[in-house]
């Protein structure tokens, strides 16, 4: 029984200390997901949280300014003004109409200051049929 107690204590120490570290890490890096439409409904402490917001980049809205890049993010009929201030260059997939995820904080004047931007190209062949159909029948190789 004594051996079991020793093992129990050893295991408990490991688990508790790792859980504590996990809690610290989670508190430090917690990010809330919101949609653009949800933003105006947020109140109190929720406004100051670190957030991640998704939408599509409004065509023609990308403005490269010294020290930051401004653009408009659209989704569910709403628009959000975003300033990207991160040090990494924006991904190559970040272009007009691309799907983007921005991570950062809201400022009191309603802008969104992003430290990270991820982007994904809009799906290609369904939305942009610029390569005209070559023939209306099945191609070779069937």
């Amino acid at each position: 029984m004594e051996k079991r107690a020793k093992f129990g204590i050893g295991i408990a120490i490991i688990l508790v200390s790792l859980a504590w570290l996990g809690w610290l890490g989670a508190r430090e890096s917690k990010t809330y997901y919101h949609t653009i439409a949800e933003l105006p409904t947020l109140t109190g402490p929720a406004l100051g949280q670190r957030m991640r917001i998704g939408g599509s980049v409004a065509p023609g809205s990308i403005k490269r300014l010294p020290g930051r890049i401004d653009f408009l993010l659209q989704g569910e009929g709403k628009t959000l003004a975003v300033s990207y201030v991160g040090s990494d260059p924006l991904p190559d997939t970040f272009v007009d109409n691309s799907q983007a995820l921005v991570e950062g904080h809201r400022t009191p004047d309603g802008r969104f200051v992003a430290e990270r931007v991820q982007a994904k190209c809009a799906s290609k062949y369904e939305t942009a049929p610029n390569g005209a159909p070559a023939s209306s029948s099945r191609g070779s190789g069937t």
Binding site: I14, S17, L18, L21, L24, G25, T31, Y32, Y33
Partner: peptide
């Protein structure tokens, strides 16, 4: 009810001591 993600600090804080053990 709200979607929250955790980032690299969470994973590193837990997994670095684990790796060393």
């Amino acid at each position: 009810g709200s979607k929250i993600s955790v980032g690299a600090p969470f994973f590193n804080k837990v997994n670095i001591p684990i790796g060393l053990m």
